[in-house]
Write a protein that binds this DNA or RNA. Structure first.
Lengths: 184, 184
DNA sequence: CTAAACTTTCAAAAATTACTGAAAGTTTAG
DNA sequence: CTAAACTTTCAGTAATTTTTGAAAGTTTAG
């Protein structure tokens, strides 16, 4: 499989960015190549295109499946497994958001909950405690908010995002109406 | 400086999470310790508390300053530099969001813009191009949205986040009113 | 200015993470 | 069932990242 210069640039860039996005170079390249390809790709093709070993392809594909970004596609009459992106770009973005929440926020939230729980029993209140509480509350807010957004349908979320800071206006609106006692 | 068991646990956890958050173990630990401390800390104290070398402290502090998460605090009559968190937790969260956007989204956005620009000239339109365009559009939307949110004041943003999926309702509201020709 | 007190730099070493490739495992056609 | 076709695992090796510590640099008190 020959990559066009643009595809090549795209794949290499994803490799370089990989580590910033929470995976390694190979995983980034695999993802780029699978996302950009119209047809599902098998291990042999990925191996050749990226000049990496069979084992590395296997591990990378496993990792991408754990992120729920690719899926195996079985073609009858062919023993090979082929892999394709799990859906459109929007869906993949949502999956990345969700997985990163699980990996980057949830563990810390869990630790802070534990630390704050036991210290509450101890009745000792100091500066550090207060800070931990603040961090806990912010992370909880962010985690819940991102779950909430994930439940919103694509169109609505897109509208919301396009609205940008304009959402401030809409909120004032809501407040004004609520004050008039018109809660819904 | 002796750390309480809770502080110890907190600092160690930030060390472990560090790499998932875009920096390394030492930087995570330094951040945790500085954030949790009521008073600014100097290199000697950090060195002793974390059992790391002077050079490592220096590099870690530089990194945290590049993230705009800590600031040097100069005490008259003392040659040492002391370091403190740059503000409250909310402010720090915003800074992390902003820096991560710069490091994780902007470079890809820039590459995609270039690739799409030149390919537009070439007039060749294929599947890969379309995908790149989709990724570009999503990243642009996210980048602009996060800039927008950053400009919102704390209270408003907090209200918005607490509203969570309920924001959907508010949007419908807006739509209904706009349809009636009541644009503001 | 000088020298003490402190910080930064950076080459070398240590630690960690990623990759290879051969062996083991799995699946399916016949 | 057997064997071919394919995938996964994992111990060893390679590559990368992090850390150290000594030398160079900077700042300020006197």
């Amino acid at each position: 499989m020959k990559m066009s210069p643009d595809t090549q640039a795209f794949v290499m860039h994803f490799g370089e960015m990989g580590s910033r996005w929470g995976f390694n170079r190979t995983v980034g390249q695999l993802l780029a190549l699978i996302v950009i390809s119209e047809n599902p790709l098998c291990a042999d093709e990925l191996m050749a295109a990226l000049s990496i070993s069979r084992g590395n392809v296997s591990m990378g594909l496993k990792e991408l499946q754990s992120w729920r970004l690719i899926k195996p596609v079985h073609t009858p009459g062919d023993r090979k497994e082929y892999y394709a992106a799990v859906g459109d770009i929007w869906t993949m973005g949502m999956r990345v958001l969700e997985e990163r929440r699980k990996r980057e926020i949830d563990p810390t939230l869990s630790l802070l909950r534990d630390l704050l729980m036991e210290s509450e029993a101890n009745e000792q209140s100091n500066y550090a405690q207060g800070r931990m509480q603040e961090i806990h509350d912010l992370l909880e807010l962010v985690a819940n908010w991102s779950s909430d957004l994930q439940r919103l349908n694509h169109d609505k979320l897109q509208t919301l995002m396009k609205l940008g800071a304009g959402v401030g206006k809409v909120l004032e609106f809501k407040d004004r109406l609520l004050k008039k006692g018109d809660g819904d």
